[in-house]
Design a protein around this nucleic acid. Structure first.
Length: 211
DNA sequence: CTCCCGATAT
DNA sequence: ATATCAGGAG
């Protein structure tokens, strides 16, 4: 995508949604970390449904250890991949208490050491909980970046690197949320709403009228 | 690359 | 009936 079009792309998204917010519910850096870890291959709505009760009981990794793996499973059985997620969340809680004083580290290399936390989840926590200008490339950003021609890449890592190069500094802070929301409601995987897309004029997607 | 894996949209 | 959903680990 041309530099001028990229500028327009984000100006349009910013105009429509000046302060974009994610749709995963959380109360602090730890619950954000848990919510994002649970959200792999699942919808926000499904995760929020489970965490609504969970986060009334659990606010810290210490709370999570008290609840226990079976107790956690009871809360998240409606979420896909719940077995491995429960195991990872418990192991991460142990590590947070033992090695980090129960605090979520503000460092990607440290975050990625936690079981069930990969680069994408770490980047979300750094961006949303700590205000870093990191761009977490999830399924939506990967699809939108490639489809529109904003930042094509074969892997999420490649797309992330390209996004950091092409997105003007003024848009980096909110780029993740703008793109994820655009991907969820307009530039959808199955049936993109190109006819009503606000950025269709600067989009490189071939069949713009497909629906 | 495969496995994990329930809920929802199409 | 099947594709997809705020991915990560082996």
């Amino acid at each position: 995508m041309k530099k001028a079009d990229i500028q327009r792309f984000f100006e349009i998204l910013r105009t429509e949604n000046p302060e974009p917010k994610g749709e995963l519910n959380y109360t602090n850096p730890y619950t954000l970390l848990v919510a994002v870890a649970l959200s792999a291959q699942a919808t926000d709505i499904g995760v929020n449904k489970a965490t609504e009760k969970l986060f009334k009981i659990v606010k810290t990794p210490q709370d999570m250890l008290k609840l226990g793996e079976d107790g956690l499973k009871d809360h998240i059985k409606t979420i896909g991949l719940y077995n491995t997620k429960a195991k990872n969340v418990m192991a991460a809680a142990e590590m947070l208490v033992r090695d980090y004083g129960g605090k979520v580290p503000e460092d990607r290399d440290e975050l990625v050491k936690l079981p069930g936390v990969g680069r994408k989840t770490a980047n979300v926590v750094l961006n949303i909980a700590f205000g870093h200008e990191t761009i977490a490339v999830d399924t939506h950003l990967f699809r939108v970046s490639n489809r529109t021609g904003l930042a094509p890449g074969a892997t999420p890592e490649a797309v992330e690197a390209k996004l950091e190069k092409v997105i003007p500094p003024e848009f980096r802070r909110h780029a993740h949320h703008w793109l994820i929301l655009h991907g969820r409601y307009i530039c959808k995987a199955r049936k993109p709403s190109c006819p009503v897309c606000p950025v269709r004029d600067v989009c490189g997607f071939k069949d713009k009228t497909e629906y």
